[in-house]
Computed example of a mutant assay.
Amino acid sequence: MLASAALNREPELPSSPKLVALLLTELGRPEPDLRRTSQLFGADPALAMRLLRLANAVHREDTRGVISVAQALALLPTDGLRPLAEQAALASGPTAVPGLSLPQFWRFSLQVAKLARALAASVRQNQAVAYTAGLVHAVGELVLHAGPQEDMASVNLIAGVCDVRRAKLQQRMLGTSYAEVGAALAQQWQFPGPLVDALRYQIAPFDNDVYEPLAGLVHLAAWRARAQESGFDDRALATSFPGEVGLALGLDIDMVLQQDPIDWSGGHVDA
C-alpha cells in the first residue's frame, strides 16, 4: 500500500468530544478567551490538523507556511474558527475509529507533544513548532484505521498503538506506516515542508537528504513515551535509546529521561 492510497477519500479525523464541546462553548462567547482557545486546539491532534489546514489555505501566499497551532491562531480571525469546531463535532466520538482506542491515542499524542516541547527547550529549538509536530505525529493512524479493518486488526493484534515496534510492523505488513501516511496528508493539505519532513522521517530522521532536527525531536519524544508505556526497565531503556539521534541534538539518555514523568492513570484528555 502506498501512503497516498490511504488518502483516496477525505479523511474524517475524530476529536475528543469533550474538547470539541468545550471549544464550541468558548467560541460561542461574545469575546472568546484566546489563551483558552489555544489550549483546546493544542490538546487534540485532529483539531490541530484542521486548524493548520485552514491557516495554510488562507495564507497560501506566505511561502514559509504556517507550522504551529500558536502561529495559526495568531493569523486567523476568531470568527473563522467556529466552523472548524462544528466540522470536528460531526466526526467526533470515542468509537469513531473501529479498532483504535481513541482515548489512549489522544493521551499518547498529547504526551509526545509535551515531551517534544520540553526537549526543544533543552536544545533551543522552537518549542511551539516541536509541540505541534509531536501532537500530530501519529495522525496517520486515524487514516489507516479508516481503511480495510482486517489489515489494521492484524497489526493491532501484535503491537498496540504505543508499542515501539508499531511503525516497522506496519511497514512490513501494510507497505506503509502511520508516519508516511501522516506526512502524505500534511503534504496534501499544503503544510510547510519542515513539518511534512518531520512527520515523514520521524521514524528514521537520518533517511532525509537534509537532516531535520524537528524529526529528531519527535523521534526522541515518541521513544520516551513508548518506553514509559511499555514499562521498560533500565536495561531496556539503555539498549533501545536512539543514541545517534540524541547525539545529533546534543541530548543523552539522562537528559531525555529527566523530562516530566508520564501519568497514564488519568481517564481524561488534558485540555
Rank of each mutant, 00 (worst) to 15 (best):
L220C: 12
D197E: 15
R224E: 02
S68M: 07
R124D: 12
A91G: 01
E31H: 08
A130R: 04
A248R: 15
G266T: 11
M49H: 15
F206T: 03
Q190F: 03
N56G: 10
E229V: 03
L40H: 06
P261K: 12
Q202L: 07
L115D: 09
V97Q: 13
P192K: 10
Q71S: 14
R200A: 15
F232W: 12
S38T: 14
A21E: 06
A96Q: 06
Q187C: 08
F241S: 13
V112M: 09
A96S: 15
A153N: 04
V129W: 03
Q87L: 14
D270P: 02
Q39R: 14
Y201N: 09
D270Q: 13
H219T: 05
A179P: 01
H145E: 02
Y211S: 09
A271F: 10
A120H: 01
A21R: 13
L157A: 15
A57T: 10
Q202H: 08
D33Q: 12
D209Y: 03
I67A: 14
G175T: 02
D33H: 12
D254Y: 08
A85Y: 03
A89Q: 15
L102N: 05
V256N: 07
L27I: 03
G160L: 05
G216T: 01
Q111R: 14
P192M: 11
F241V: 04
D234H: 08
A271R: 10
V245P: 03
A43H: 05
G93N: 04
D263Q: 09
G231I: 00
E26M: 08
W189Y: 09
Y178M: 10
H137K: 07
D197P: 01
A248Q: 09
P45I: 06
S15W: 02
T63G: 05
A138T: 01
L40M: 09
V97T: 15
W189S: 06
K168V: 05
G193P: 01
P103S: 09
A128Q: 13
R172N: 06
A221P: 00
S240F: 01
V143C: 12
S122W: 01
D209K: 13
F206H: 12
T63K: 12
A57K: 10
L13C: 08
S92G: 07
P192A: 12
R50M: 11
V136N: 07
A5D: 06
Q190H: 13
S68Y: 00
V256Q: 07
F232Y: 15
A271M: 12
A179F: 11
T37I: 06
C162Y: 01
A89R: 14
C162V: 06
V210Y: 08
A118Q: 13
P11Y: 04
E12S: 14
S154P: 00
Q87R: 14
Q228K: 07
S68P: 00
A222L: 11
I262C: 13
S92N: 03
Q127V: 11
G267Y: 01
D163G: 10
S230E: 14
R36K: 15
V164Y: 07
V196H: 05
D197I: 00
S265L: 10
E212V: 03
A225I: 01
D79A: 13
P14D: 07
K168Y: 04
L195V: 15
L34T: 05
L195E: 01
G243M: 08
L23E: 00
D260C: 09
A85M: 06
S122V: 03
V256M: 12
V66I: 15
R50A: 15
